[in-house]
Design a protein around this nucleic acid. Sequence first.
DNA 1: GGTCAAGAAAAAATCCATATTTGCATAAGA
DNA 2: TCTTATGCAAATATGGATTTTTTCTTGACC
Lengths: 232, 232
Amino acid sequence: MATRTSARSLTERVYVCLRGDILAGRIAPGQKLKPSELSAAHGVSLNVVREALSRLAGERLVRALPQQGFAVIGISVDDLADLTDVRATIETAALRRSVDGGDLVWEAELVAAHHRLAGTPMSDPESPGEISDEWMRAHNAFHQATMAGCNSPRMLEIVAGLGESASIYRYWSQRYGDGHRDIAGEHRGIFEAALARDADLACRLHREHIQRTAEIVINGVSGTERTTPEEN
Amino acid sequence: MATRTSARSLTERVYVCLRGDILAGRIAPGQKLKPSELSAAHGVSLNVVREALSRLAGERLVRALPQQGFAVIGISVDDLADLTDVRATIETAALRRSVDGGDLVWEAELVAAHHRLAGTPMSDPESPGEISDEWMRAHNAFHQATMAGCNSPRMLEIVAGLGESASIYRYWSQRYGDGHRDIAGEHRGIFEAALARDADLACRLHREHIQRTAEIVINGVSGTERTTPEEN
DNA sequence: GGTCAAGAAAAAATCCATATTTGCATAAGA
DNA sequence: TCTTATGCAAATATGGATTTTTTCTTGACC
């Protein structure tokens, strides 16, 4: 009679939940994560929280400071610039391979992903200004789908990790769009270039897409001074 | 009276130890990791082992199978081919940036790293045929040093992860050289090209270096049928 | 009067021993 | 032979013990 929540163990459940909270910015970057509070909130023991946090520490989503507990990974303008740079390099490489070598299955799933993204409203009608969870999922899935044809599990895993890091910035800044921007159009451009097997164009558009996003986020972050120190 | 082993907590200590064992192939790829055995061997409680394993699971060095414990990441010829491909793409990108933009500090540390590598015997005199731990460390440090000038912490972290994955294959196959190969010369070539700021040459040599290594390992792995299934 | 240091109390992190649940293997029954 | 019960071993979860860090207080010194 287990719940069908696709979580076979308590640790797994807490891990997934915590991970979602971090990626969605429901827990602020840099914030301390107290096992006692979390265990109370989730109704589980200390050790299962501890284990979930350890796993997230391995993924670099939280930092483990010996004898000082855990904290969500911090954000900074420098890191965002670095992240964007790395994404531009690695993701275009993956995209190029994908566009050059993607098969029919890839095409079909890309079409599906774009259709889903295009049909998902960006902001929740009840809370305008905030990016909806659903849209963010569709958005990540779309970009992932463009590169899925590269036929390299490791590359896709790296790209997924980069995308997650970017998610934190996007969600946290909540300044994804600035009104003057046609995001749907940008996605359509990438989509059509990929389907047309124009790797150069797809890569150029993708690069511009992530760089433009980063610029807006940087303005949002630096404007409200949300930078957190990133000691090591 | 704490030991100066730079491990402030038991979990940290076990984590580092386990990680080293995996990377050095002292624990075979695919092997199950029983918390009870490990806790007995290290003289600690179950939970600290569990926590260390969870962290390694986050790094994808071990797999966590719900209700079935943990196992070292498996190896396969397909994965090695993929890994090599990804390394060729990402590491050459990092290397190019490094060679193009590295400063004097980078140069100095690269010289030091190469000197250390050149002065370290590849195999232990008491166990010929096996790659010495010391050489492997110097080797990883050298390749890392060539790319350190790229001025991108995230890129270097990704590269480090790829290098660790490659370590597992190298150590496990124990067939790094085949006699006909001048590894020191290959390293010197990369080193000199980097110092001469010849990015194209450095990248070409680096690519050939890792591809040649992979070929030899693939022969070694497939020859002795050491492939482990990689279910997901 | 203000600043800094030593010490005690509180809070938090870490660790352990044990209890509970789950999965696998063996064997009994149809 | 196939299905179903049962026992054992392993994985997981819990509560509390122990150690470390942080905070707060007190008093000496500048």
